[in-house]
Amino acid sequence: HNLTITQGKLFFHYNPKLCLSEIHKMEEVSGTKGRQERNDIALKTNGDQASCENELLKFSYIRTSFDKILLRWEPYWPPDFRDLLGFMLFYKEAPYQNVTEFDGQDACGSNSWTVVDIDPPLRSNDPKSQNHPGWLMRGLKPWTQYAIFVKTLVTFSDERRTYGAKSDIIYVQTDATNPSVPLDPISVSNSSSQIILKWKPPSDPNGNITHYLVFWERQAEDSELFELDYCLKGLKLPSRTWSPPFESEDSQKHNQSEYEDSAGECCSCPKTDSQILKELEESSFRKTFEDYLHNVVFVPRKTSSGTGAEDPRPSRKRRSLGDVGNVTVAVPTVAAFPNTSSTSVPTSPEEHRPFEKVVNKESLVISGLRHFTGYRIELQACNQDTPEERCSVAAYVSARTMPEAKADDIVGPVTHEIFENNVVHLMWQEPKEPNGLIVLYEVSYRRYGDEELHLCVSRKHFALERGCRLRGLSPGNYSVRIRATSLAGNGSWTEPTYFYVTDYLDVPSNIA
């Protein structure tokens, strides 16, 4: 807008934040220059609390790290170098490059900038070799853009010569660093050979998330399962459950009422301010606690030095998902009996873990797994792929695949051998790939016309006998059925096997 004052003059007093240069501009645009008398524009009460600059400061050096910015700028000295009290560095987070010096300023003089007072450097006698002032900004957020400017702080001049310097606002972004852990990993099994893994992005990506790394490792069953005799009275049979499938998407929606109208769909109840505040506090606490764990609990591995020492970490090797089922080394339970199943799973520490690289999504279907087997899954978020990966501390989750139908069934015939004193040795093959492992066998036998009897055969007993022995049988026709019990439950009964026990007292003698 054009402003013209045809008559009258300007009068400025007691404006401590208004620089004289701005008042002189007002004289020019209003056409009143030359009308004012000496005392109409006070030299001592206008701009006496402001830094009124008329020179431009330029930054000469900028260096960044993930949490620091090192700045240096060209030296500046007023005509009387004693008038320079120091520099004021202003900075704040700036997602967009549209910041002005006066953003967030209120009537009390406060604003949204963080201000650092910096002492002037030592003055050199040689004007050509003056030290460049600077400042190291610490405690910054990774991968965050900051708006920065600097200006001088000078003393009051009796001659009211307006001098000083100020830089333009520059924008500097800190470097990326390792992201925080992925949030809320959930693993479920939808079949006997697959596990579905879902997660949420890290709360602090500290860069642009480029991919996720998912490692999985087959877990050995508890050692007590191999040692305890679950045929003993009072000892509860062990059981394991597989990871249940995901709930429906509708039930997972946030901010939804727990109660549904019987007449149909209901609208979600909005969260109160107290609920939102509580969630923010919980989120802040979780982030602080995660940072504490990362800094205190997890110790970084030592990389190899120039002395030739090897990095103890196993090298990563990509495998196809079809090879995942046989990740671990199978060892027989008892070496003397080769027909026992290889369900003991000690994992070799030198073995390469299978892994998958996930790009542009937060889910993965891990296939080719062994049925009813526990897996430990390790999830890392990465925001750099080359020249070397920059990934987060791992988040861990466990899951067990679903049982395989008929995996616990005894394959092959049940054979028998009759000894003296009416002892019958029953023999059968253990299931080759049971659900988890076989903890015991149930032997059901009966003599024709009598009630059915049951015998429990422990895992250890089966390994020693290759089956079991029935003792003290009365003469007669017998039928026997056997079924295995694994961590997933009972298998199917075998087809009945028949044998006849004679009275050993009636056996004919070869003595003449």
Rank of each mutant, 00 (worst) to 15 (best):
R218I: 07
A309F: 04
Y396V: 15
F215S: 08
C269E: 03
D408Y: 01
P332H: 10
S274C: 11
S239K: 15
D222V: 11
E260I: 09
E362M: 09
T272A: 15
K406G: 08
P238Q: 13
T288M: 13
E451H: 02
R447P: 10
I276L: 06
A407G: 04
P496I: 13
E282R: 04
E247P: 09
A220K: 07
S305G: 02
A463L: 10
E282A: 05
T288F: 07
T307K: 04
S268P: 14
S223N: 13
T401H: 00
V296W: 15
H254V: 11
E265N: 15
S509I: 15
L232T: 07
R447H: 15
Q429E: 14
L455W: 06
N360V: 08
R218T: 09
R313A: 09
N421D: 15
N295L: 02
I366D: 00
E452N: 15
Y445R: 02
V480G: 02
E260S: 08
C391K: 05
I438P: 03
E420N: 15
G264S: 06
V424Q: 04
T241A: 12
L280H: 10
E388R: 08
D311N: 11
K287M: 02
T210K: 01
Y478N: 01
V423I: 10
W428K: 01
R471C: 11
A399Q: 03
H371I: 13
V480K: 01
P387H: 07
E265A: 13
G436T: 14
N295H: 02
L369Y: 01
D385G: 13
H371F: 09
V329Y: 15
E224L: 10
D408A: 04
D291N: 15
F337C: 08
H461W: 13
I209Q: 15
N206L: 01
E310H: 05
R240F: 07
S367Q: 10
R471W: 05
N477P: 09
L379A: 09
R316Y: 13
P338V: 08
Q256L: 12
A220G: 15
S363M: 03
E217Y: 14
L455V: 08
L369E: 07
R240C: 06
S305A: 08
E451L: 12
E265S: 12
K287Y: 02
K317E: 15
P244N: 13
G374E: 15
T401A: 09
A335W: 13
S509T: 06
L235Q: 05
P508S: 12
D291L: 03
D250E: 14
E258A: 07
N295D: 08
T303L: 05
P403F: 03
C231N: 01
V397G: 12
R319A: 11
S341T: 07
T373R: 04
F289K: 01
